[in-house]
Write a protein that binds this DNA or RNA. Structure first.
Lengths: 325, 325
DNA sequence: GCGGCCTTTAATAACGTTGTTATTTGTGTT
DNA sequence: AACACAAATAACAACGTTATTAAAGGCCGC
């Protein structure tokens, strides 16, 4: 590989002059610059960012740590974050394990954007991250954490969904999913808040997958009357539930309404375009990218930020049918 | 940041000894090693890979260049390639523009895996890539290119789909899509090969999106008799077409059969689980990862490799109905 | 008690940059 | 012709490693 020294030799100048010329420094004569640049070009010179970064202490690399790449929401967020970071002239490296995060740090990534689940799944990571020099931003937390973070107000999202269904006259609302306790609790609270008498029967336990959502509805307890509306824990569960409802002969939204968590664009392409609620992933990515870059540059900013969920109305919610409880 | 020299000072040895100790060299006494490692740990030492890579000339970074992150197939491939590379202890950096590819090279990425469309969309890139020191593997080409590459035999995939439909007795087959000429030509050839008389009416032009597939069927020319089976250019078009068919009152597969290109897992979750054909993305990722790493390590291997498409039978194909042409 | 040899550690030169400090060259003034 | 002074270039020390070469220190046999 041709280096700055090779160019210097060829141009008959010192390599420090070449460095300055390549960086368009005013300290070197215009004519010399032109000559050096021309030689560099003709020799196929490619600057070595490793060396530059070693002295500058900056790499313009940002790690994105996440867990379950299987869920389309992560793919989506990955795209969005890449887009947002590229616009700020930063490169993105993906990491899905603490080991990879560790390597990113050793690679002197300037910053890390980490999905909350990755930290919560590996508790020791949290304290380590605090000590590292890479600026770390945790995104998608439910509760405040001792690191700069972006909180998704899932409680508010669920509340909004319940309110929305309530405004369509729904009085029996089911919640499909279970693992993320906060949403379940938020659901029960919101339902009570909306003046309804929540029943344990309204909870439909489900794995956070398409299959899970499908089974939760398809093989629901026959003795429990069918709610007039459902809220699905995430995009996959919701799609599975929709499939099951249709298979069982329920019309959506005429017989049963449905709201799914997670604002994924392709929810509009389901059999029935699904009304969704959740953070705007674009907003999340943009905020995270800007905030982490600000942190790197020492600009002040909030250590905690809340992304408010938004509800995107589509065809899956309609007035509650007149149906006996 | 604590460096090797800080440790040396604290341990009262030279920094070269520390380096050896950290790399578990047999040239340093066991006891000294232990002492140094302990000190390093207590000082929170994090090795600087930039420096290491500068001298070693290797970065264990591999760039993945692609174009349309919007199509789920790319998200899927990204995940798969990340998985395959992580297993080989390589990090992956995403790039979606020639500029980003360029930076990857300047960052001295050891290798690049590039989606064919990115190169074909930026023709000058091809020759540059050949000159660079980063080992480059182009994936997803239709024709051989002057760089090591992985070809997807799309012609064979289409042929397989046609043969499969033929074996179910279909004689009028539509093809939805247009931009990727090779698939259209392959389709016409395969149809002729199967002993059918291809008609221009069998081509349903469509943008490569859900919307495109939907409109192609929903607003098809009314004077053309409905084929008994369709092949969709890609996953999105196929899903859109399925929606349109069902809306028009056709039962799938009883009235119309459907095969989609691209083996994406979630095709099984469509209204009707869709039979798909295409390369196994897992196989593509595994092969690409191993091959590019072999190239980096100077191991010999094929400059061209063909991934044969596979057909995954699902519910969307059935015997052709008895219907007048 | 002195070469010869192994074990252990130290010193030093890379790797390819950037930034700071020295040195040379050129120009105008007196 | 000597001098100050700016403009242009050169020299060199970082950055944090690895790898190669040099220097100690300890032990052996004679």
């Amino acid at each position: 590989m041709v280096s700055i020294k090779d160019i210097a030799e060829r141009a008959g100048v010192s390599y420090s002059t070449v460095s300055k010329a390549l960086n368009d420094s005013p300290l070197v004569k215009e004519e010399t610059k032109r000559r050096i640049l021309e030689i560099a070009r003709s020799m196929g010179y490619q600057r070595n960012l490793l060396a530059r970064h070693l002295v500058s202490g900056r790499t313009r690399l940002i790690g994105f740590g996440l867990v379950n790449l299987g869920n389309p929401i992560f793919a989506n967020l990955t795209i969005q974050l890449h887009r947002a970071l590229a616009a700020l002239d930063y490169r993105m490296v993906i990491a899905i394990s603490p080991d990879e995060i560790d390597l990113l740090n050793q690679m002197r990534a300037d910053g890390l954007v980490i999905w909350a689940d990755l930290v919560s799944r590996h508790p020791h990571l949290m304290e380590e991250l605090g000590r590292w020099q890479a600026k770390t931003l945790v995104i998608g937390t439910d509760e405040p954490v001792p690191l700069p973070h972006v909180r998704f107000d899932r409680r508010a999202g669920i509340a909004e969904a319940v309110r929305y269904l309530r405004s369509f006259g729904h009085t029996r609302i089911g919640f499909i999913g279970s693992s993320q306790e906060i949403k379940v609790r938020a659901f029960l609270e919101a339902v009570a808040q909306a003046g309804l008498q929540p029943s344990p029967d309204w909870l439909y336990p489900a794995e956070p997958t398409f299959e899970g959502g499908y089974r939760a509805i398809r093989y629901a307890r026959p003795d429990v009357p069918m709610p007039t509306a459902f809220i699905g824990l995430n995009n996959l569960i919701t799609k599975g539930a929709l499939r099951a409802l249709l298979e069982l002969g329920y019309r959506v939204p005429q017989d049963v309404s449905l709201i799914g968590y997670d604002n994924l664009p392709d929810m509009q392409f389901a059999e029935v375009p699904i009304t969704t609620v959740g953070p705007s992933l674009e907003e999340v990515a943009d905020f995270a990218a800007h905030r982490v870059v600000d942190m790197i540059n020492g600009k002040p900013g909030p250590d905690a930020h809340v992304i408010e969920p938004i509800l995107i109305p589509r065809a899956s919610v309609e007035r509650a049918p007149d149906r006996a409880g």
